[in-house]
Amino acid sequence: MIQMVAAGLSCLGFIAVSAMFLIWLERKVSAWIQNRLGPMRTGFQGALQPVADTVKLLLKEDIAPQGIDTLSWWLAPFFVTVPSVMAFVTIPFSSRWIPRDLNVGLLYICSITSVCVLGIFMAGWGSNNKYSLLGGMRSAAQIISYEVPLLLSVLIVVMETGTLSMQGIVQAQHGLWFIAKPHLALAFLIYLISATAEVNRVPFDIPEAESELVAGYHTEYSGMKFAMFFVAEYTNVFIVSAVATTLFLGGWQGPFLPGVVWFLLKTYGVISFLMWMRWTLPRLRMDQMMSFAWKVLTTLALVNLLVSGWMMVR
């Protein structure tokens, strides 16, 4: 019992620290890309900036606009944050560090992260703001469409390993990471693109679309509720990168260094790649993004699934 509480608390602590670190990292990476310095005043290289931001957000007045749908307005931040925290249950940080190695771990992660879209849509619907509504609508359409290629690409890994347990998948990559095999490399590509769309990042940040919808579904949120959306966003980024690491990049496996270090190195590598994309590419349009999901990615994932299945039974 105590062990479980301790594991839960340390997980929560890790999530908070990781989100803060990611926020700092994003600001530094973007500054580096844009010939700026980024935050410099708070601590070494502005390392305490996220702390200052968090304190500011905690102290801010919690504003609720007129005419909101109270229930969905209040519940939306929780619906966004809680699933992303729950997804940590089956992330294998090392051979021993895993909150719980479910035998349906992958299925669990995929299903629990999909709940996020509900929260985003509730936020868009409840805010009584037209920009938020448009953002929520876009988000629902986007996340549901990109779920399909995402799952299809994940399915190839399951076919390869024959298990849904995250530890099982990592152990199956002993010696050779899955990304080294061509059909799984393609699956990795599809997964990465779909995952970018899942977590609403550029070039798929259409639900937020700062230059079009101001801030999309979280336009009206302020203070702690906004902080929850923010934390959820960065936690989700961490999760999709962690899943990518686990499924395709060998998870915690690697020579010399301990498993946790390898896992975090790989995960932050994937995150850095996502950040690089975010600060370089323009945004796609809604219809272009949808047709890309259904016409290109889903087709590609299906063909990939078919071909690799055929290779396996042959």
Partner: peptide, 14 residues
Amino acid sequence: FAQDLGAYATPLFY
């Protein structure tokens, strides 16, 4: 213009 197309601030800073 690039900023309006959603390229977050990078072309603008350049």
